[in-house]
């Protein structure tokens, strides 16, 4: 074995070069100026493409418009509708029932209308809402839509408690600012978000105040 290796040591240099060339560079976007584009350094292909897509979207500062297209962006806890949207399904957590459609959860009121409620932890729905953003945390992929974090299950997608330290590009509909010990947070249901700026836009990190 050792002799065979010594015989082929001359292969090492070309092999190294081939390996270096195979580190296919993926340019990071530079937007709005040729100078920025020219400055983008080549980096190895990222492992998590979802993170890169999220980053690009962040950099483009289009979140407020982009989410307009998704059904859940128009609903926040406290709103009420007279009629449920066609295509709704029933879902429950324990003994509590909900009506669900595309990221929005309703419960009947005493007056015959349906009130929007915060996505309940533990509920399992058959499909992800439109516009769900993948958020990778270690080995787990969460999907963020309508202010809830979903994790894939054998029977569908379950709303889970928000993982901490995760960055999202938009707040849940109806999130409100709150100042705790001099620090501004946004709170939606029981999830707190710390606003920070990244890439020139405000993004939100799930946190414990």
């Amino acid at each position: 074995m050792k002799a065979a290796l010594q015989e082929h040591t001359w292969l090492i240099l070309p092999a190294m070069l081939a390996a270096l060339c195979a580190l296919v560079p993926a340019a990071r976007a530079g937007w709005g100026s040729v100078r920025a584009s020219n400055r983008s350094e080549y980096r190895p292909e990222p492992v998590h493409r979802e993170a890169e897509r999220v980053a690009d979207r962040r950099r483009l500062d289009i979140e407020a418009e982009r989410r307009h297209a998704f059904y859940w962006a128009g609903f926040q806890p406290g709103l009420a509708v007279g009629v449920l949207p066609p295509g709704y399904v029933q879902a429950s957590v324990g003994a509590t029932g909900y009506y669900y459609y595309n990221g929005v959860y309703f419960q009947p009121t005493t007056t015959g209308s349906y009130a929007v409620v915060a996505p309940p932890v533990g509920v399992i729905v058959p499909q992800l809402p439109d516009g769900a953003d993948p958020v990778v945390v270690g080995p787990t992929t969460y999907y963020y839509a309508g202010g809830a974090f979903y994790v894939q299950q054998p029977t569908g997608f379950a709303v889970t408690p928000a993982p901490l330290g995760v960055t999202v590009t938009g707040l849940p509909p109806g999130a409100a600012p709150v100042t705790i010990n001099g620090v501004v947070y946004f709170v939606a249901g029981s999830t707190y978000f710390l606003p920070v700026m990244q890439g020139g836009v405000t993004v939100y990190v799930t946190a414990h105040p």
């Binding site: 980096r43 190895p44 993170a51 890169e52 980053a55 990778v136 270690g138 995760v166």
Partner: peptide, 8 residues
């Protein structure tokens, strides 16, 4: 955004 960082 670069270097394969996750959203964490």
């Amino acid at each position: 955004a670069t270097g394969g960082e996750s959203s964490q």
